[in-house]
């Protein structure tokens, strides 16, 4: 009984993550790059459209996308855009992304961008927000690989809820 109570007390103060933004994360591993697509949840989408759809036409024009990239997306650069490459020994940050675009479809905001493929035979692409404010959700059906082996797996990092894509060239 005492152990149960003590465990309960520990759980009462435990650090169970509680994200507020949910990103369905689609990964497409291509021969020369990796395309990433984030689909925001509806509530976060409406909040972001409030800030960035300046002419309120429920579409994002080129200027709005450019501002969104600068004011919103690029602020994640210090956080490695919630992605890290694991080469078997250490985690590497991602600081350069390409081809950013944003669109609003079926009431959801979508970000698309690409990253360069690392020059490694086998590596992992790990998706997590260290502040646990954003949940990156990766399902098997969200992953596309052509000509190479890849798989989605859970990522066992203490207190991080995470998914990773294991890629074998």
């Amino acid at each position: 009984m005492k152990k149960l109570l003590l465990l309960g007390w520990i759980c009462a103060v435990s650090l169970f993550a509680h994200p507020h933004v949910f990103l369905d994360t689609y990964v497409d591993v291509l021969p020369d790059k990796i395309d990433i697509r984030w689909v925001f949840d509806e509530m976060s989408s409406s909040m972001l459209m409030e800030d960035y759809d300046k002419n309120r036409d429920k579409k994002l024009d080129a200027n709005e996308v450019a501002f969104m990239e600068k004011d919103h997306f690029k602020t994640l650069e210090p956080y490695s855009y919630f992605m890290h490459i694991f080469n078997g020994k250490e985690e590497l940050d991602i600081h350069v992304v390409h081809d950013f675009n944003a669109l609003f479809e079926k009431k959801k905001l979508i970000y698309t961008f690409s990253i360069e493929k690392p020059h490694m035979k086998k590596y992992e692409l790990r998706f997590y927000d260290p502040e646990m404010f954003v949940a990156l959700i990766l399902k098997k059906k969200f992953l596309t690989c052509k000509t190479i082996k890849c798989a989605v797996e859970g990522y066992d990092a203490d207190f991080y809820y995470a998914y990773k894509v294991v890629i074998q060239e």
Binding site: F16, A17, P19, A135, G154, Y160, Y161, A162
Partner: peptide, 20 residues
């Protein structure tokens, strides 16, 4: 802890989507 945390995040997401 991380697998519990993933389930917890998914549960939060469920409520978020249902409320929307």
């Amino acid at each position: 802890f991380s697998s519990l945390a993933i389930s917890f995040a998914e549960a939060n997401r469920y409520f978020n989507a249902e409320l929307s």
